[in-house]
């Protein structure tokens, strides 16, 4: 069963039209840019990186949202 499913996907990719391959290339390039460039370099979790415990995070948020 698993080998049939595997073959199904392999055949699908093998017989794909050239524009389909271009789309896959775009998808992979996009995922690389999103997860390996944007996420890793620019989008760290602010509270996760600045504070060690949930208690500290809660305290920061309370300070930030109260006047």
């Amino acid at each position: 069963m698993i080998s049939r499913i595997f073959k199904f996907y392999v055949d699908g990719f093998k017989n794909m039209a050239s524009w389909g391959r271009t789309l896959w290339l775009i998808i992979l390039l996009k995922l690389f840019i999103l997860f390996f460039i944007f996420k890793l370099i620019f989008f760290s979790d602010t509270l996760e990186t600045r504070y060690d415990t949930d208690g500290e995070r809660a305290e920061h948020v309370i300070n930030a949202i109260t006047k």
């Binding site: 789309l23 896959w24 775009i26 998808i27 996009k30 995922l31 999103l34 944007f38 996420k39 620019f42 989008f43 760290s44 979790d45 602010t46 509270l47 996760e48 948020v61 930030a64 949202i65």
Partner: peptide, 20 residues
Amino acid sequence: AIGVATGIILEFQFGTNWSN
């Protein structure tokens, strides 16, 4: 294919720009 995962960027922004 072109649109898939563009929404994930919103979740990145939640954690970084809108952490409170």
